[in-house]
Simulated scan of single mutants.
Amino acid sequence: MADMLRYTIPDIAADHADFRGVIWTGEHSQLVMMTIPPGGEIGTETHKHTDQLLSFVRGTGEGTVGDETHHLDPGDVCAVPAGTMHNFVNTGEEPLALYTIYSPPEHAAGAAYANKEAADAAEASGQDAPPAQ
């Protein structure tokens, strides 16, 4: 039996400056930390075969999932079913920190990108592909 892996999200969020960093990747899900700078966004996207849960830790923002848009505060959680268009924008004056759980994994195990441009480039080149299922 595997040892329990324990993560203290507020501590990770406090020290996390990268746009996106994969914390843990399992066979069926993945834990990723994100920090979006003021005025920044994840970018409109759709994950065809991946469900996503996003939990907001610090900052304020606005989330659009499908046709609905809502204000977001620390403690809020958004569920994005596979195949649903979504975007999350930092509307505050401090970084918007969140963690997200992808099921199945969406990104390369251990991947970390300092900013959205680097993350987008890695995805476009295939460098940020999830582990083979």
Rank of each mutant, 00 (worst) to 15 (best):
M1I: 09
M1H: 12
A2V: 12
A2N: 11
A2Y: 06
D3Q: 14
L5M: 12
T8H: 14
T8K: 09
I9K: 00
I12C: 03
I12E: 03
A14F: 00
D15C: 09
H16K: 06
H16W: 07
G21Q: 02
G21H: 08
W24V: 09
G26P: 00
G26M: 00
E27W: 09
E27T: 13
S29C: 11
L31D: 02
V32H: 00
I36S: 02
G39W: 01
G40L: 13
I42G: 11
T46A: 07
H47P: 04
F56W: 01
F56D: 00
F56L: 05
G61E: 05
G61Q: 05
G63D: 05
G63P: 08
G63K: 11
G63C: 15
D67T: 13
H70Q: 14
H71T: 15
G75S: 01
G75E: 08
C78P: 11
G83K: 03
T84R: 03
T84Q: 10
N87A: 07
V89F: 05
T91D: 03
E93L: 08
E93I: 10
E94R: 04
P95E: 09
L96Q: 08
A97S: 14
Y102Q: 09
P105I: 04
E106D: 13
A108W: 02
A109I: 10
G110Y: 13
G110E: 01
A114W: 00
A114P: 10
N115I: 05
A118M: 07
A119T: 06
A121H: 08
A121T: 04
E123Y: 09
E123T: 10
A124K: 12
G126T: 04
A129C: 06
P131G: 10
P131Y: 04
A132L: 11
